[in-house]
Computed example of a mutant assay.
Amino acid sequence: MSIETLTLKIYGMTCEGCESSVHHAFNALAGVQNVEVNRLLEQAVVTYDDELLDKIQIINAVEDAGFSTT
């Protein structure tokens, strides 16, 4: 197990429901250890096992939830 931390800018979160949606999207991924989502800072900090998950999968989860990282 190799634990990594990724900080992502996330655009489009306008309410607590959006924040919750992003949080749930990350938690649905195998290998996620911890998630901190802050809509006011427009960011999420994800701690994950990089043997089970990669950055592309994390970014795809955000985009699949309807938000942007760019």
Score class of each variant (00 low, 15 high):
Val32Trp: 10
Val62Gly: 02
Phe67Glu: 00
Leu52Lys: 14
Ala44Leu: 04
Thr14Glu: 11
Cys15Leu: 10
Tyr11Gln: 11
Ala65Pro: 01
Leu53Asn: 00
Asp54Lys: 08
Gln57Arg: 05
Leu40Met: 13
Met1Leu: 12
Ser68Leu: 12
Leu53Met: 04
Glu19Gln: 15
Val32Tyr: 04
Leu53His: 01
Glu51Lys: 14
Leu29Pro: 04
Leu52Pro: 03
Asn60Gln: 11
Leu40Tyr: 12
Glu16Ile: 03
His24Trp: 08
Val35Met: 10
Ile3Met: 11
Val35Arg: 00
Tyr11Ser: 12
Thr70Asn: 09
Ser20Glu: 11
Ala61Val: 00
Gln33Trp: 02
Glu36Ser: 14
Thr14Arg: 15
Gly17Val: 02
Thr69Pro: 04
Asn27Arg: 13
Gln43Thr: 12
Asn38Met: 11
Met13Ile: 07
Arg39Glu: 09
Gln57Ala: 08
Thr70Leu: 11
His24Arg: 13
Cys18Val: 03
Asn34Lys: 09
Ser2Tyr: 06
Leu52Cys: 12
Gln33Ile: 12
Ser21Gly: 09
Gln43Trp: 01
Cys18Thr: 09
Glu63Phe: 07
Ala61Phe: 02
Leu6Lys: 06
Val37Gly: 06
Val22Cys: 08
Ala61Cys: 06
Gln43Phe: 10
Gln43Arg: 15
Glu19Leu: 05
Glu42Pro: 08
Glu16Ala: 13
Lys9Pro: 04
Glu19Ala: 09
Gly66Ala: 07
Ile58Asp: 01
His23Ser: 12
His23Gln: 12
Leu40Gln: 13
Asn60Val: 10
Thr5Leu: 13
Ile10Cys: 12
Glu16Ser: 13
Asn60Ala: 13
Ser21Arg: 08
Tyr48Thr: 01
Val22Ile: 14
Cys15Gly: 13
Ala30Thr: 14
Val45His: 05
Tyr48His: 06
Ser20Gln: 11
Phe67His: 03
Glu51Phe: 07
Thr70Cys: 07
Leu53Gly: 00
Ile10Val: 15
Gly31Trp: 00
Lys55Gln: 14
Thr70Pro: 06
Gly17Pro: 07
Asn34Leu: 09
Asn60Phe: 04
Gly31Leu: 00
Ala28Asn: 14
Thr47Arg: 15
Leu6His: 00
Ala61Trp: 01
Gln33Lys: 15
Ser21Pro: 02
Glu63Thr: 08
Cys15Trp: 08
Glu36Leu: 15
Leu40Asn: 14
Met1Gly: 15
Asp50Met: 04
Leu6Glu: 05
Thr5Tyr: 03
Asp54Leu: 03
Ile56Arg: 11
Gln57Lys: 10
Cys15Glu: 09
Gly31His: 02
Val46Trp: 01
Thr70Lys: 10
Val62Asp: 00
Glu63Ser: 09
Met13Pro: 04
